[in-house]
């Protein structure tokens, strides 16, 4: 896939500021590097703006459930800031946009992109891996050999995989 047309996110080097237009801010950080960013953001939130703030190890059912409950309680005017490894930030953004949050309401910083989740369109399972784009990984759901493709779904927060040998004669 040509570099010009990939949907693999290119994360800006710049750290975004807290949106001064927000009436309430939620901060969610993953891991130690994310926590440092969160601490700086927290200090920058205007004094009277309510802040919801959590540092967690990773985006799992517990932490994503926590975020989903916060979005469900939020009123329009709310902003979300995410910091941490790409795999966790993408998963958290996926939950937020699935609940109707817009890109204009989310600011993100990625502290590393070593790990990724790969979606298998054959069994619809998701496999976490440290493999790079264009490598192959076995699907955790169905065992097929998946080629990790240079396409990232915003909705799923995952890379697309597809069966590496689909066109070979069995």
């Amino acid at each position: 896939m040509g570099a010009l047309h990939t949907s693999v996110p290119r994360w800006p080097a710049e750290i975004p500021a807290v949106d001064p237009a927000g009436r309430a801010v939620a901060l969610l950080a993953f891991g130690a590097a994310g926590k440092r960013l969160l601490t700086a953001w927290r200090a920058a939130v205007p004094e009277r703006t309510p802040v919801w703030s959590h540092v967690v190890d990773r985006a799992d059912d517990d932490s994503l459930g926590l975020l989903a409950r916060q979005v469900a309680e939020a009123r329009v005017g709310w902003r979300l800031m995410l910091a941490g490894p790409e795999v966790d930030v993408l998963a958290a953004r996926s939950v937020a946009i699935g609940l109707g949050v817009l890109d204009a309401e989310i600011r993100m910083v990625v502290t590393g992109a070593a790990r990724k989740r790969v979606f298998c369109p054959h069994c619809r399972g998701t496999t976490e891996t440290a493999a790079p784009v264009a490598a192959e990984v076995p699907c955790a759901g169905c065992g097929r050999r998946l080629h990790v493709y240079g396409h990232v779904s915003r909705r799923l927060g995952a890379y697309l995989g597809f069966m590496a040998d689909a066109e070979e004669v069995a």
């Binding site: 469900a72 009123r75 949050v101």
Partner: peptide, 9 residues
């Protein structure tokens, strides 16, 4: 109303 709408409105 505008001050109190659920997220996603």
């Amino acid at each position: 109303a505008l001050a109190d709408q659920p997220m996603g409105t």
